[in-house]
Amino acid sequence: MIFSLILGFLLLIIGIYGMLTQKNLIKIVIGFSIVDTGTHIIIVSIGYLRGKTAPIIDSSVDIKNAVNAVVDPIPSALVLTAIVIGLAVTALMLSFIIKLYQKNRSLSVDDYQELKW
């Protein structure tokens, strides 16, 4: 599906734009999660085959001819684990932000100039 591929790329570019321009740390993490969603949409739309059904072989799919009736299962499996990891990484980044805020009382990147804190 070409439209979802374009949508994924647009979301990726918007997310990177947000990560580059915003000063607020929470806004940067929001940009990261938009990039995450965009990448997942790209991977899933690469695996889509026109007019085929989900890779679950139940009564609606002919078992003898299953290979020609289902979409690619590998991108789904990859994205499934990537989403869960994305949540854990986001939680880790946000707890770093909470720690930084407790130390310096600021959410702006400009206030964190020194490398050691």
Binding site: I2, L5, Y48, L49, R50, P55, I57, A66, V67, N68, V70, D72, P73, I74
Partner: peptide, 15 residues
């Protein structure tokens, strides 16, 4: 980008 019409070898093996 050319969209495949059929599953690749590896995916067919998995199915």
């Amino acid at each position: 980008f050319d969209f495949h019409q059929e599953l690749g070898d590896l995916s067919s093996q998995y199915v």
